[in-house]
């Protein structure tokens, strides 16, 4: 009596191939292109930085010259003020020391004729 079974056989046309090959679809530009792009962007950026540095140098000179143009004006004003205070101090000293013999008001303790600013200023 024949046994009721069915031999398990490969499907019609055989098994399909085993998928052992890499399957990586193309996504975006290649490595060289990205490297080149990054390099290009960086080069442009550094170029702008260099231009900006040159420009900052000019801006600094502009600021310096603006200040230089104002130096005589401010110096003249502060000179008048210093002179006024010096004269007042001299008058004060003369008044205070009038009874001291041999005292020269306003005499410097140095023998150098070069001008030096006063050490003490009454504000």
């Amino acid at each position: 009596m024949p046994t009721a079974y069915r031999q398990d056989m490969p499907p019609e046309g055989g098994f399909e191939m085993i998928k052992y090959k890499r399957n990586l679809p193309f996504r975006g530009p290649g490595g060289l292109a990205i490297l080149g792009g990054v390099l290009a962007v960086c080069t442009y950026g550094m170029y702008r930085v260099a231009l900006g540095n040159l420009e900052r140098r000019e801006l600094r000179r502009e600021k310096t010259w603006a200040r230089l143009h104002l130096v005589p004006l401010l110096l003249a004003e502060s000179d008048r003020d210093t002179y006024r205070r010096q004269q007042a101090a001299l008058a004060r000293e003369t008044e205070i020391m009038k009874n001291v013999e041999g005292w020269e008001p306003g005499k410097s303790v140095y023998n150098n004729p070069k001008h030096r600013p006063q050490e003490f200023v009454v504000i």
Binding site: P72, A76, E77, D79, R80, T82, Y83, Q86, K114, H115
Partner: peptide
């Protein structure tokens, strides 16, 4: 540098 020296110019 004496302030008295350049008052006129100032």
């Amino acid at each position: 540098r004496d302030p008295a020296h350049c008052l006129l110019e100032g």
